[in-house]
Measured scan of single mutants.
Amino acid sequence: SSYVCVECNFLTKRYDALSEHNLKYHPGEENFKLTMVKRNNQTIFEQTIN
């Protein structure tokens, strides 16, 4: 599966890399929402900020 930060167009295969991205680029933000999307037999988790 892949993880994408929709706000930044940041894409990674690792959830911990997304967490690091959030700490660096969205410090103090807590209203993240992950949406699971299936595309071409791949699972993509799209992160948006509410």
Rank of each mutant, 00 (worst) to 15 (best):
P27L: 07
L34K: 10
L11V: 08
T43I: 09
K33G: 07
V4D: 12
I49E: 13
S2F: 04
T48D: 09
N50A: 11
P27S: 10
C5N: 02
E29M: 08
C8F: 00
Y3R: 02
E30N: 05
K33F: 07
N22V: 02
E29L: 06
E30H: 10
L23D: 15
N41R: 08
C5T: 01
D16C: 14
R39L: 04
I49Q: 04
V4L: 14
N50R: 05
E29P: 04
F32C: 14
T35M: 09
C5R: 00
I49C: 11
K13M: 09
F32W: 11
N31R: 07
N22T: 06
K38V: 03
H21G: 00
I49N: 11
E20C: 03
S19D: 15
V4A: 10
R39S: 12
Q42I: 05
E46F: 02
V6W: 01
T35A: 10
E7L: 08
H26D: 01
V6T: 05
V37C: 11
K38L: 04
H21F: 00
T48W: 08
V37S: 09
T12P: 03
T43K: 12
D16I: 06
V4E: 10
F32Y: 13
K13P: 15
R14D: 13
E30Q: 15
M36S: 11
E46S: 06
H26N: 00
S19R: 10
H21Y: 00
S19K: 12
T43M: 06
K38G: 08
K33A: 09
R39V: 09
E29A: 10
Y15D: 15
V6S: 05
C8N: 00
V4P: 01
K38D: 06
V4F: 13
Y3E: 00
E20F: 09
C8G: 01
S19F: 04
N41V: 07
Y25H: 14
N22I: 02
E29F: 04
C5D: 01
R14N: 15
L23G: 15
Y15L: 06
S1L: 05
S2R: 04
D16A: 13
R39G: 11
N41S: 09
R14P: 14
N22G: 01
N40G: 12
E30C: 08
Y25W: 05
F32L: 09
V6I: 13
N50C: 01
N22R: 03
P27H: 07
E46R: 08
C8V: 00
R14S: 15
C5V: 00
Y15K: 12
V37F: 06
G28S: 14
H26F: 03
H26A: 00
L23A: 06
L11Q: 15
P27V: 05
T43Q: 15
Y25Q: 15
T12F: 09
N40Y: 03
S2W: 11
V4K: 05
N40F: 03
R14E: 14
C5W: 01
E7P: 10
Q47F: 02
N41Y: 03
Y15V: 03
F32I: 15
N40C: 04
E7Q: 06
D16Y: 05
N31F: 03
Y3M: 07
L11D: 13
R39A: 08
R39E: 12
C5H: 00
N22K: 02
E30V: 11
L11S: 09
L11M: 12
S19P: 09
M36F: 08
A17P: 04
Y3V: 03
L34H: 05
Q47V: 01
F10P: 00
Y15E: 15
E20S: 14
H21A: 01
S1H: 00
F10A: 02
R14Y: 04
P27D: 04
L11T: 08
V6L: 04
E7D: 11
E46V: 01
F10R: 06
G28R: 06
E46N: 12
A17C: 15
K24P: 00
T43N: 10
Q47N: 03
Q47H: 06
E29C: 09
Y25E: 15
N31I: 06
Y3S: 01
N41D: 12
I44V: 12
E30Y: 12
N22A: 02
N31Q: 07
E29N: 11
T35Q: 12
Q47S: 06
E30W: 05
K13D: 12
R39N: 04
